[in-house]
Design a protein around this nucleic acid. Structure first.
Length: 479
RNA sequence: CGGGGUGUAGCGCAGUUGGCAGCGCACCGCGUUUGGGACGCGGGGGCCGGCGGUUCAAGUCCGCCCACCCCGACCA
């Protein structure tokens, strides 16, 4: 239960975030360092995220499956970049059944290797392709610094792993998924994102191309909110994933993988949250509207509650995720604050005056205080509420988009870039050299986020070295 | 791994020259309250992070260890 005020976002953003996660009962610290317990409210939110994505994946031919948590250590050594990228953060099982294992087992940090191994068994012919499998589960990465949802030792996600006959098909798959991720962020999470390609230094270990969607948090830092990778034949060669083509020639498969993790919940918190707490987009909110009955005594209660019950039934029948807060031990005022902390998009207050006037009071979470309150008729309440939820969903996206756009700058020179990334993003021409990228990082701590797919065209001069550049990139400090 | 900090009731903390372990919130009971975080009265709850040492006596002094949090180098 929310028992205290949060620090404001300006006072202490990190502390605002931590306390919000705990007080909104999204998650709690687990007894193991860096691990979290996702509480029922947080998991309900996650389920709304996963079920939407699951539907989208299935709609374009993907199927779900499950692979083991434990992976032979030797699998990780088969792809050079992959093992180099992941070995620092592997958790390794050395004992089982009271005895030392002959070969250590890795708790999966991602499943390319074991899935590659299985694909090699399953794929013989061009007729077996493509394989489009998604695994829902959790993975473990030994992180040095953790933060609830944003970076935890164990986190939840889906990982899509696909194998194709040709490069074109694999590339198409990578971009198809990136589009789904973008659609999810815009339409469900109300988070504007930028689709783009990662630089070589920011690429996934073992990938030929890594694409990402990048979002701006309230503190103007960037959060990579989803990734989609093209591996070319890297993993196929490491794991012997080969097929016979129509001409009876043995070919290596082209593979991809892609993921959105429970980190996206951190993005929802940081993009929409305010000093009162969480603000959830209606399409993902576990509770879209909460009803708070108001009465002084038994007489008023017996007048109010039948109306509450009737309206609740109507709203529920209309498919709205609605809850009645009928707790007796706390005051309405407390409930207002409590549900605001939890980010419920719409509050419906019903008291004696409303019973008399056939009205209810609606309070929008995204517009705090009096301005967000309106008094509407009880007639056709489901339609009114549905309309309001749609309005709120759109308002959140519009607000987040305006905020992001206002904080992306096009610095004139390197000096200005250094200032800009202190409190925003820079969108600049870049020669794509590691040296210039490293210089920016060393000088400012900002990294390249991605090279957007959507380019202005033409060419310019690298913001760092002044050499010819053909593409623009986003520089920002990132989570 | 480096720097900083904290470990005492579920949470937040106080605890003096070493001398019966406390306060606020939360929790339980009863009553009054209820349109923006109500109040009164009465309760329950402790291996004081762990181990060792000093002492008649340790939450307090000394040593070692452990854990967690915050700030830096890697990552979705």
């Amino acid at each position: 239960m929310a028992d205290e005020k949060l620090p404001t976002q300006k006072e202490n953003y990190a502390e605002w975030y931590n306390q919000l996660v705990l007080k909104a009962e999204l998650a709690d610290y687990a007894p193991v360092r860096g691990c979290m317990v996702v509480r029922p409210y947080g998991w309900a939110l996650w389920e709304n995220i996963t079920s939407w994505l699951d539907n989208e994946f299935k709609a374009c031919g993907h199927v779900n499956a499950a692979f083991p948590t434990l992976i032979p250590m030797s699998f990780f050594e088969k792809e050079k970049e992959h093992v180099e990228g992941f070995s620092p953060e592997l958790a390794v099982v050395t004992h089982g059944g009271g005895e030392k294992l002959e070969e250590p087992l890795v708790v999966r940090p991602t499943s390319e290797t074991i899935i590659g191994h299985m694909y090699a068994k399953w794929i013989k012919s061009w007729r077996d392709l493509p394989i489009l499998i998604v695994q829902w589960g959790s993975v473990l990465r030994w992180e040095m610094r953790t933060k609830l949802f944003l970076r935890t030792t164990e986190f939840y996600w889906h990982e899509g792993h696909t194998a194709h006959a040709t490069k074109d098909e694999a590339m198409e798959e990578m971009y198809r998924i990136l589009d789904i991720y973008e659609k999810f962020c815009l339409e469900e999470a109300a988070i504007p994102v930028i689709k783009g390609t990662k630089s070589d230094t920011e690429r996934f270990a073992g990938a030929q191309i890594t694409t990402s969607i990048e979002a701006m948090m309230w503190d103007k830092r960037a959060l990579q909110s989803g990734t989609s990778h093209y591996f070319g034949p890297n993993f196929s060669k490491a794991f012997d994933i080969q097929y016979l083509d129509q001409g009876n020639t043995l070919q290596y498969c082209e593979t991809t993988s892609w993921a959105i993790s429970s980190r996206i919940i951190g993005a929802l918190i940081m993009v929409h949250g305010d000093d009162q707490g969480l603000v959830l987009p209606p399409r993902l909110a576990p509770i879209q509207a909460v009803m708070v009955p108001i009465y002084r005594d038994a007489d008023q209660k017996s007048a109010v509650m039948p109306v509450v019950d009737r309206l609740f039934a109507e709203l529920k029948a209309a498919g709205i995720r609605v809850k009645v807060d009928d707790r007796e031990e706390v005051t309405p005022g407390f409930k207002f604050n409590d549900w605001e902390m939890r980010g419920v998009p719409l509050r419906i207050e019903i008291g004696p005056k409303d019973v008399e006037k056939n009205s209810v009071a609606l309070a929008r979470r995204d517009i705090p205080g009096r301005e967000g309150k309106s008094f509407v008729s009880q007639d056709n309440l489901p339609a009114t509420v549905t309309g309001m939820l749609t309005t709120i969903q759109a308002a959140l996206l519009a607000k987040a988009t305006a905020f992001r756009d206002a904080n992306i700058h096009d610095p004139k020179d390197y000096e200005e870039l250094k200032q800009v990334v202190e409190d925003g993003w820079a969108y600049s021409w870049w020669c794509e050299s590691k040296e210039c990228e490293a210089k920016v990082k060393a000088d400012t701590k900002a990294t390249t986020r991605n090279i957007p797919l959507n380019q202005p065209g033409g060419e310019g001069r690298c913001i760092v070295c002044g050499e010819k550049a053909t593409r623009k990139v986003y520089f920002a400090k990132a989570y």
